[in-house]
Design a protein around this nucleic acid. Structure first.
Lengths: 152, 152
DNA sequence: TGCAATTAGGACCTTGATGGTCCGGATTGC
DNA sequence: GCAATCCGGACCATCAAGGTCCTAATTGCA
């Protein structure tokens, strides 16, 4: 499906909600869980990963919480995806690790996926979380009366 | 990881090998399995899916086999990915199917993934299988002495 | 007409990653 | 000292992907 994980989706949602915090203020995981409608442990997990990637900052103790380290506009989408899902690599034999592919000599596309990854990487670098969150422009889903999408 | 399935990888390999067939000639699944180093049932599965998508054509009976319906250069990568992995949709709530997301009203990125999908789709449309298979240009993997890539 | 080769279309099982929860420890403010 | 909160990890369940196999349907040839 070429889909990214739900955690990444959650991460984007949490990040946008985290933007609601007052200047310098922090939001706790339970509060964010309430705002997003996600389960609290899940939100915690997402925040921990994001904190590890340096996208958010956690402050412990009473009055603790999380806050963004940068404005949403300064966070490219690819950074969130990389943090949550790991590096973009469409196939196993695409990174420079050899020896994993038993039919290496017979493989005609060896090392050929790199440009594809690059193309996707470029496409994802130009989009920031702010682009995803807003502006509160026209919602491209004007009340579809029935599901157009054919389930896979 | 934002990776596509192995089957898709196999599909690309099989397609490029299928290109080796003489003009109008066909290759059987066992032969292709031998050429690619993949297991025969797996190759069969891939070919069946590709045939269903109209990318290859199967001919039954003795002297049967598979052949390409188009030259590799006329097959965009995205078509293979769509055939093997299904439509490109990064998140569950991205297609026009509603009602699956319980926190729909609270979700600030609702419908916002579409441009992302579009960006990726565009990036993948410009690449053909022929681009992946060849030309037999410089291999971008000149014998790396050690793995540079940090395993996830 | 019968037989062999081959694709077509599934069913089936196994395995691994993902999603999600929980617990103990460390830190901070009151 | 106590309560609130993050931090780090372990843990388990679920589900889709990967892979194999079996039974038709079709085709060419003897």
């Amino acid at each position: 499906m070429l889909r990214l994980s739900k955690l990444t989706d959650y991460a984007v949602v949490v990040l946008t909600r985290l933007d609601d915090a007052a200047e310098g203020g922090v939001l706790t995981a339970p509060v964010l869980a309430g705002n997003t409608g996600l389960a609290e442990p899940t939100v915690s997990k997402v925040l921990k990963i994001l904190a590890h990637a340096g996208l958010v900052e956690g402050r412990r103790g009473a009055l603790g919480g999380y806050r963004l380290t940068r404005p949403l506009a300064a966070i490219p989408l690819i950074e969130v995806i990389t943090a949550m899902d790991g590096p973009i690599a469409l196939t196993a034999c695409v990174d420079n690790s050899f020896g994993v592919c038993e039919s290496e000599s017979a493989c005609p596309v060896r090392g050929r996926w790199d440009p594809v990854n690059e193309a996707i990487r470029r496409a994802l670098t130009g989009i920031s979380i702010a682009d995803l969150a807003g502006p509160p422009a026209v919602v491209p889903h004007p009340e579809p009366a029935f599901p157009i999408f054919a389930a896979e």
